[in-house]
Every structure is written in C-alpha cells, then in structure tokens.
C-alpha cells in the first residue's frame, strides 16, 4: 500500500459514532432520496461477492501542493469531481464524520440509481465512506493524499464486495468493474485538473483479497438499490408531471 498516513496531530476523533440506522438530515428538492433512510451500513464483512482492493491514484505533476491542501480541496468540492450525470448530495456541513450523503447515479436506460454513503472517518489527509444496504458494493472507500518521490499523489482505495448476486454477476461480466474503474479514474482526473495538473494520468491496481463468495448474504438482494430505483421510476415520473414534492 502506498501511503504516508500517520496519526495527524494525535487525533483520535476523526471517526463517526456507531449508528443503528442511517438518517438523512437534509436533501435538496432535486435529489431522489431512496434506499438510504433507515438502512444499516453494509459492513465490510457483509457483502456477497468477491472481496477486491482497488487502488486508483494520480501524481499531481507540475504543482506544488501539500497532501493537506489536496484533501481540503477534495472535501470542499467532492461532488464536482464526479463524472457528469452522477450526483452526491451532502449536508451543508460537508465531508464530516457521521454525515450521510445521497447518491443519484446515472444508470442504463435513463435510470437514476439512488443510494448513499456515510462518512465514517475524516482527518486532514484522508476521509472514508461506507455504503448502506442495497448499494452496489459493501465496503469502505478511502480518499487520501500523500507525498512520495518528491511529488504529491491523490489516491482512492476501495475495499469492496458486490453486495448481492445481481451486482456480483455484473462485476463478473465486467460491467461493474468497468464502470467503477472509469468512474474513479475520471474523478481523479477532474480533481487533478482542478488542482492545476495538465494531462493527469491516473493509474490503477487491483488485488483480489478474497475470491470466495459469501452465500449466506444472498438475501441482500432484497435491498438492491438498482431494482428499487427502477421500481420507483414511474412514481418519480408522476411526481414530476404533477409537481408533487412529498
């Protein structure tokens, strides 16, 4: 693992408090708030599919910037770095431990897949999200910055299992991995360009930590956010046509 993390200022308080169920504190009118409220976090050991560690990173060539400055900019502008058509709605307090964000992702067929994240950890050189039940994957994703070889790097490291058999199938067929990889590569590119890097070149390393599937978790399919978002589409259409906000 390439990182230079350590105990920042002796801080032990960068963690969120444990929760039983997720609660969305606020959401803008345009956000679809589905599959988050009342859900549990998908624990790192609760997904269905193979466990992957995926590390995406980019060297911030040509700019003089500290890891702290990178993370500060990343936290402040996090949703803006996502590829177009994908939205993250975080509370006004931003990327803070314990905050819950809504995610509306572009999916095939014009579907908006609605899910979310919880910020479980944040310090001045990293922050981490965990996902709720029904999300594409169960696990944790950490965004960090570090110095190495006289340069500064921004890194995204995901430790994830597909949450249920349908998602696992999409990963096995390559769609899931492909879209996940493209998503985070584009995010790193956008971040690097925002920080003044010309022609950033993100790289990626995948490691299969556990090739086994956890069959006992097949019931996670009940919460599948893709299916539930699809079923919600007609409701969303009616709401839009009649301008219903409830």
């Amino acid at each position: 693992m390439s990182t230079t993390e350590s105990n920042p200022q002796g801080n032990t308080n960068g963690w969120a408090k444990p929760i039983d169920k997720l609660k969305v504190s606020e959401s803008p009118k345009e956000a679809i708030n589905l599959n988050v409220e009342g859900r549990q976090l998908s624990g790192l050991t609760h997904g269905f599919g193979q466990l992957w560690q995926k590390t995406y990173k980019v060297r911030l060539s040509g700019v003089k910037i500290s890891p702290q400055e990178v993370i500060s900019a990343w936290k402040a502008n996090f949703p803006k770095f996502w590829p177009e058509g994908n939205d993250l709605y975080v509370p006004l307090t931003g990327i803070q431990p314990g905050e819950v964000g809504l995610i509306n992702l572009s999916a095939p067929g014009g579907l908006k897949l609605s899910t979310g994240i919880m910020v479980i950890y944040a310090d001045d050189i990293s922050f981490s999200f965990m996902t709720p039940e029904g999300h594409m994957f169960a696990g944790m994703i950490t965004f960090s910055a570090y110095e190495e070889d006289n340069g500064t790097f921004a890194q995204i490291q995901a430790l994830i299992r597909a949450n249920d058999p349908i998602y696992e199938l999409s990963f096995r067929m390559g769609f899931g991995h492909k879209s996940e990889d493209a998503f985070w590569a584009a995010t790193l590119k956008n971040l690097a360009q925002h920080l003044g890097v010309n022609n950033p070149q993100p790289t990626q390393a995948n490691s299969l930590v556990d090739p086994r599937m956890q069959w006992r978790e097949w019931r996670n399919i009940w919460h599948n956010a893709g299916i539930r978002s699809g079923l919600y589409m007609p409701v969303a259409l009616v709401k839009k046509v009649f301008n219903i906000t409830i």
């Binding site: 990182t3 993390e5 002796g10 790192l44 466990l51 950890y121 490291q157």
Partner: peptide
C-alpha cells in the same frame, strides 16, 4: 494501540479474511 485510521481497519479486514 495509540491510533487507528480507516486504512488500519482495512488491514484488519484483510487479516480476518
């Protein structure tokens, strides 16, 4: 233990596996 961050939790998951 003095301090553990989220990458440390990730290491524990790897140990568990």
């Amino acid at each position: 233990l003095d301090y553990m961050n989220s990458s440390g939790i990730g290491l524990l998951v790897t140990l568990l596996i």
